[in-house]
Design a protein around this nucleic acid. Structure first.
Length: 679
DNA sequence: GGGGAAACTACTC
DNA sequence: TTCCAGAGTAGTTTCCCC
């Protein structure tokens, strides 16, 4: 982020942008040779003064303080202390060296600018032109032509356009990427090809070449890069060296490995990001992996045991050579960004949306958990998390909202630009499935990869042990563009019925008639469900409604301790046209002749006036026309289209696993990683 | 003081 | 004109309870 070139440069007021590295990093493939000074200046000019910028400055100050503390600790170390830490470091280095395994051949395959490449494949006119996938607020990835201008993933589009005025923006199309990532078995993979090489008398280099050719043929032109090395840490680094459409082979030789790692910038290592790079450089003067070993005593003095172990293994170029166990998912979350607002009704609407999306995801994966974490990003970009652990496992929208609204309410008043919910601490019985619904087994990967096998030349030699498993990972992450909604999609958290409708496009439509149809078709089942769950939801009614009332309004006494049945019956009575037609379960909030009622309780006119923008008068007129016999103006809470199908398209469904084929069996230890997986 | 929960940070793409 | 994402994991620190 605001990485300082060095601490001395912090006082450089003539070129303040030199301190502002938010959007520029030459750690990314394709960014070499970028006019760093120009990019930094433009990004600085476009960012300065913004809330985002101020928050980055705050974070940078925090890191600088941390670095100063570390320097102070270093300065206090006496020769005897340093000698002690050197002994500790030497012992760790010896132990690590004893674990070095140069017998394996690992290949890391990585797709090149995946989203951008897919878009170019479907529109060849984009070829050779600078292009970014995304929009003005944020871009997901940029092709190599755009990267030469300093444009990169996770950069706001308006800055990218300033850097490259000819930049072509292509909106994200997740269905397309899903299709192609299915073909390529995702876009990043580790394969232990040791046994294949032995059996076929070939090299890792040749296997990598064949794999890349297979991906190219299978997809009709997408390219990938590969790294071949004795361990996963090195293979990952190597795959980045000759990007795009290239490969790099590191021999299984200690001298070659040590020579390779010695001059390698620490930032090239997976797990070392901009902050760690900054700290290592400015606190300890470490920029390359070789320097980690040279300053090993300081590493042991300043960092925790696990961090020191990691840094020293990086210095020695020692990485994982085994095939990691498939790990179960630890948490599941959903978050959305929107235009910053302090409107509490809006914030609770958003919260309800997210709770429902989370619940849908949980039910799709059959998960239940105990710890709910609310994530908030304030208008000033400050991130807060608040968590609660309940006695019982939860997964329903109602239960999530019950806890989430309490957590959010405790933070009010606050102006927010993001709300997220995460559920963790899963029910042990429910855990066991792969952590990612898109994960497939190694058998899936190879047995369904006909073209790949064809390119490998010998089908039978690649049949796999069906007990092998692997993990998959989507490299280019999803970027939802519903970030700046001003309208509100509030579903009654008391309504269990919507859960069964989430995959139905009608349930997310803004069309009134369609919602009514759904309600009609499911009301009986819903009523039964609600009766069954009546007791469970007694608290919930108040918890959900109370926050909606906003400051100055208390939950009406007449509803203290109310059951759902009572609320529903009153809502039906008072709500007549609005509630019975639109489904009182879909809308807690409605307006009757400019008097707003929540759960049938009339609110003062000021409540409506303060929230005028949330009411859809057009929809109200339509409703009024259709419902003859009404003599009052009815307004319902504006319904926003939630692109659920868009979200759903980001998640892939498991494919039927083909039956293992007969034939010669040579296992390939391959797995598809999560980005944060240890090497 | 140990252990668990919560809060926060860093990192990956 | 547009104005800085989303999902997930892990490590560290802090706090609180027993």
């Amino acid at each position: 982020m605001l990485a300082m070139a060095n601490t001395e440069s912090s006082g450089d007021t003539a070129r303040p942008w030199q301190c502002y590295n938010t959007a520029y990093t030459n750690a990314k493939a394709g960014m070499e040779g970028v006019d760093k000074e120009k990019v930094q200046r433009i990004v600085y000019e476009m960012s300065k003064g913004s809330q985002y910028f101020r928050n980055e400055e705050r974070k940078e100050a925090f890191i600088r303080e941390k670095i100063e503390n570390m320097r102070a600790r270093c300065a206090k170390l006496k020769p005897a202390d340093l000698a002690h830490y050197q002994t500790v470091a030497d012992k760790i280095i010896l132990e690590l060296e004893a674990t070095r395994d140069l017998s394996r051949i690992w290949v890391h395959v990585d797709m090149d600018a995946f989203y951008a490449a897919v878009e170019t494949l479907s529109d060849p006119s984009l070829k050779g032109k600078p292009m970014a996938v995304g929009g003005m607020s944020m871009i997901s990835t940029a092709n190599y032509e755009a990267r030469r201008f300093g444009v990169r993933a996770a950069m706001p589009g308006f800055i990218a356009r300033k850097l490259c005025p000819e930049l072509i923006f292509v909106p994200t199309d997740f269905k397309k990427y899903t299709y192609y990532s299915d073909l390529t078995r995702k876009d990043e993979a580790y394969l232990d090809v040791t046994e294949v090489c032995k059996e076929r008398g070939t090299t890792g280099e040749e296997i990598a070449r064949e794999l890349r050719a297979g991906v190219h043929d299978e997809t009709g032109g997408l390219t990938c890069s590969a790294g071949v090395a004795p361990n996963r840490l090195l293979a990952k680094v190597c795959s980045d060296i000759n990007k795009p459409n290239g490969q790099f082979i590191l021999p299984n030789d200690r001298m070659a490995v040590m020579t390779f790692i010695s001059s390698l910038p620490v930032r090239k290592i997976g797990g070392i990001g901009k902050v760690t790079e900054h700290i290592l450089r400015d606190a300890l003067g470490i920029s390359t992996c070789e320097e980690i070993l040279q300053k090993s005593s300081y590493i042991c003095a300043l960092f925790s045991n696990s961090s020191a172990d990691f840094f020293l293994s990086v210095g020695l170029a020692i990485g994982g050579t085994d095939t990691p166990q498939v790990r179960s998912r630890r948490s599941i979350s959903n978050e959305r960004t929107f235009s910053a607002t302090g409107d509490e009704a809006f914030l609770f609407c958003k919260l309800a949306d997210i709770a429902e999306m989370l619940s849908t995801d949980l039910q799709k994966e059959g998960l239940r958990g105990r710890t709910l974490t609310l994530k908030l990003k304030t208008a000033s970009f400050e991130v807060r998390t608040r968590a609660v652990t309940s006695q019982k496992n939860i997964c329903s929208t109602e239960d999530i909202m019950k806890h989430a609204s309490k957590l959010l309410k405790a933070e009010l008043p606050v102006s927010l630009r993001l709300i997220g919910l995460r559920l963790s601490h899963f029910d042990e019985e429910k855990v066991g499935a792969p952590s990612d619904p898109t994960q497939k087994t190694l058998t899936d990967y190879m047995l369904s990869g006909d073209a790949l096998r064809k390119n490998m030349g010998d089908q039978s030699s690649l049949d796999l042990d069906p007990t092998d498993h692997c993990m998959m990972h989507v490299e280019e992450t999803c970027l939802s563009k519903d970030g700046h909604q001003t309208s509100c999609d509030y579903r009654d958290p008391l309504d269990e019925n919507h859960l069964s409708n989430l995959d139905d496009s009608k349930s997310t439509s803004g069309n009134f008639e369609e919602k009514e149809e759904i309600y009609e078709s499911t009301s009986n089942a819903n009523a039964e469900k609600m009766n069954a769950n009546d007791n469970q939801n007694e608290d919930n009614v108040q918890d959900v409604v109370r926050p909606l009332l906003g400051p100055g309004y208390s939950f009406p006494d007449q509803f203290e301790g109310s059951s759902l049945d009572r609320v529903n019956s009153v809502t039906k009575t008072l709500g007549d046209v609005a509630s019975s037609s639109v489904s009182q379960k879909k809308f807690l909030l409605w307006v009757n002749d400019y008097k707003c009622s929540i759960c049938g309780i009339e609110m003062p006119p000021s409540f409506v006036e303060e929230r005028q923008e949330h009411f859809d008068f057009h929809l109200a007129e339509k409703l009024q026309k259709e419902e003859s016999g009404t003599d009052f103006k009815t307004c319902v809470l504006k319904k926003r289209n939630v692109p659920k199908d868009h979200i759903a398209s980001q998640r892939k469904h498991k494919k039927q696993k083909p039956s293992p084929k007969e034939g010669k069996h040579i296992p390939i230890d391959a797995f598809f990683v999560k980005s944060n997986q240890n090497f």
